[in-house]
């Protein structure tokens, strides 16, 4: 397991984010301070509307913040111009979504290869790496399947393979098990924990699913736009 002595992969200070304007303005993040370390799987939990997804989006650099600073892997993300931020995200981050967001017209292998296509890696090489990654997540025999011909669990594994194929150092997961049944959710989390234990990577998981809490190293509770507490999770899987 990892501890706070590990270098911070993500360092967030005083993050403020509001939506709307005037009387209808809602401040979703109210001064968040958070460090996430390499070799760590951090669970981000809290009630709905508490700001988890907003924080996740801010850390990923896909949502502009109103105030504060976010450093990712030593790079001041909030200071980067949009183009550079997009490139940085493509090179260092992987994403796993609740709704998978696979492209329905592409096969499993092609979906997994998309981040490599974005990085301008040639199609044969990208597909070769995509097939290898699918093999790693146990879908070596489904490389040419379209998403509609895969089960929910298999689709999420394709999404994980897609998130991992360009070997990102920061893996961002939004409710990765919500659409899955218990056993499939456990398998997915085992995969993510394996990634999170790698010393030069870290994983952030937003979740409501208490069945997977024991896969995390730490758990941050976000309520009403503030982190109310951060707890270390015991080896046995109890909080």
């Amino acid at each position: 397991m990892n501890d706070d002595t590990q270098p911070a992969a993500v360092r967030a200070r005083g993050i403020v984010k509001s939506f709307g304007a005037g009387d209808t303005q809602v401040t979703v993040l109210k001064g968040i301070d958070l460090d996430i370390h390499l070799g760590e799987l951090l669970l981000l939990v809290g009630e709905s509307g508490g700001g988890k997804t907003t924080l996740l989006s801010a850390i990923a650099g896909i949502l502009d913040i109103d105030d504060g600073d976010i450093d990712v892997l030593g790079v001041p993300l909030s200071a980067l111009p949009p183009g550079k931020r997009t490139r940085f995200r493509g090179q260092t981050m992987g994403f796993i979504y609740q709704q998978f967001n696979l492209l329905p017209a592409l096969t499993a292998a092609e979906n997994v290869a998309v981040p490599l296509f974005i990085q301008k890696i040639g199609r044969p090489e990208a597909l070769r790496r995509a097939r290898a990654m699918l093999d790693r997540v146990g879908l070596g025999d489904r490389v040419d399947f379209l998403p509609r011909n895969l089960s929910g669990g298999q689709q999420q594994r394709v999404a994980i393979a897609r998130a991992l194929v360009n070997e990102p150092r920061l893996l961002i997961c939004d409710e990765p098990t919500t659409a899955l049944d218990g056993p499939n959710g456990q398998k997915i989390m085992e995969l993510l924990r394996e990634v999170g234990r790698s010393p030069d990577r870290c994983v952030i998981v937003v979740t409501h699913d208490s069945r997977i809490f024991h896969f995390g190293d730490r758990m941050a509770n976000l309520t009403d736009g503030r982190i109310t507490n951060i707890e270390r999770i015991q080896q046995e899987g109890t909080v």
């Binding site: 896909i62 183009g83 997009t86 490139r87 995200r89 493509g90 981050m93 967001n101 981040p115 974005i118």
Partner: peptide
């Protein structure tokens, strides 16, 4: 849109 959003999140620029 979600798919395009996913591509954007994965590093595809608006130009791409």
């Amino acid at each position: 849109l979600r798919q395009f959003g996913a591509l954007k999140a994965m590093g595809a620029s608006t130009c791409t």
